[in-house]
Amino acid sequence: MVTQEILLWVRGTGLQIAVAVFVIGMVFRMLHIRMLGRKKSLAQARGSEWSGGLRTIWKRSLVSTRLSARGYFTVIAGFIFHIGFFVTLLFLSQHIDLIRAVLGLHWPAMPRGVIDMAAVLSIAAMVALLVHRFVDPVKRLLSDFQDYLTWLLSFLPLLSGFMLLREIGFEYITLLTLHIASVELLLIVAPFTKLAHMFTTFMARWYNGAVNGFKGINI
């Protein structure tokens, strides 16, 4: 009974709180960054900030062809993790049911086999990236507590979700509770940590590209 009550709270009030913190926190974070402002350049423009900004948002989403071996490893593992994460998030039938219940939007689910593979690849990529963070001298030097915390917070929903689908380790109800709770933890912490990069990346790319666009540099 207690387990069921916890699940009810987690999927009800708990989820509402987490979503509210995520949305309000993220909006506040983005507005706070935006409101720090930047000086408008008084130099004579040679091109458009907008075209440069949008170009960079697009181009930095592609895999560069000029990477070193460690660079390729990071980028490819990073791609696999992100794609796997979003495939499981957006195309698992249970997730689509939840989205339909809340937002009224829905789309076709992917077959379970595809979801399983995406989850496994994503988990494997995350583990590989963590090991690389420990062994690569550059990443080891750069890494701080937040890097490891955000790794863990991103990893737990994937792992618990996979265990839930396979009913590994615990009872279904316990696994479901753990899975939802791990998602809520991710949502609550995201706006206050580097997980905010899920949105701020686009601002960063825009600002970088805008400087080049202003100068008429098409890169």
Binding site: V138, T200, M203, Y207, N208, V211
Partner: peptide, 21 residues
């Protein structure tokens, strides 16, 4: 010196180390 671009850059850095290369 910290302006909107700087804050967006620091907020986004995931310490991937690609800039080293």
């Amino acid at each position: 010196q910290i302006d909107a671009p700087t804050a967006s850059f620091f907020s986004s850095c995931v310490h991937c180390g690609l800039c080293a290369d």
